[in-house]
Design a protein around this nucleic acid. Structure first.
Lengths: 156, 156
DNA sequence: TTTTAATATATCGCGCACGATATAGTTGCG
DNA sequence: CGCAACTATATCGTGCGCGATATATTAAAA
């Protein structure tokens, strides 16, 4: 009820939204996704699909495992997502010959062409956001520093 | 395929995952949620439910609109979420008398008691993460600076 | 060479997120 | 007053995320 720190025990004050790190992280991630969506929807992509396409532009053909390692996603998310990308005609999938467990993901021509169509999105977004390049850069630096610690902590 | 910047046009280099701000934001948000979940599941809460409970601990009884404004969530997310919180016995809902459009959310005794059960979670998490308090604090500062710009940009 | 463990992918179920739409209730304007 | 604009909530459909589990293939151990 009170935001008066002198009246709120410190442990309960930590549970107030404005004192939490987790909330702005959660909220800004969702808002960024929504911003991207305005540019991605016309191209037929969702935001997680865009993440996966970025990985494929750089690494295809590669196994689903590799995509998952880079996107930090498991097959319970990736299998249906890749199915949709295949239905859209951006990729196709094929079991690897030498190791029948693996499924290799290949880019189609449309999938390759999509990269050009996406090339302007990051700068358009930065412009629309109207936050200094410095702020964005130091945010990225901080997150890149914390991300490995998060990966470790999740596994323990 | 190549990470050699001299061989990759700058606009396409921006589409490589490690040059993007959006990915570490998206990934760390999900990982933080997963970390919280280990502490929240035993209490019968999901992470978004925990966010909503934090708002209610501070502002209940209040309307769904107020909860949505603070959590940056709409009723298409909140209505079913609040239903589940009610089924768990943490809250109850009632139409406001003076304005029959509003639904007021009240904390039950169990809902109030839950705050104590959650009071140790933030510090436990920070300890497990093993990142300096300085890093976490400057991350929060940066995010709080960018969040308003994001809210604005989403509306335009 | 069996047997066992590890690996890669798939499936299921639940709970978000969110765009789009619908429905009451309220307010304001002519 | 009557009617249009606004507000608060609910519903629907789609696509994630992810814990849990299943299956097939390969590698390692006995």
């Amino acid at each position: 009820m009170s935001t008066d720190l002198s009246a709120t025990p410190p442990k309960l004050a930590q549970l107030q939204l404005e004192n939490q790190l987790c909330f702005p992280l959660y909220a800004s991630s969702r808002l960024i996704t929504r911003l991207y969506q305005t540019y991605l929807t016309p191209l037929g992509l969702t935001y997680p699909q865009y993440i996966v396409m970025m990985i494929l532009w750089e690494h295809a053909p590669c196994s689903i495992k590799v995509v998952g390692d880079k996107a930090l996603l498991n097959t319970n998310t990736l299998t249906p997502l890749l199915k949709r990308l295949e239905q859209q005609g951006f990729i196709h999938r094929q079991r690897a010959g030498q190791d029948e467990r693996m499924v290799l993901v290949y880019l189609s021509e449309a999938g390759v062409a999509l990269q050009d169509a996406c090339s302007e999105i990051p700068e358009k977004l930065a412009a629309k956001l109207g936050v200094s390049r410095d702020s964005l850069l130091s945010l990225k630096t901080l997150l890149d520093e914390i991300l490995p610690a998060l990966c470790l902590a999740v596994e323990t």
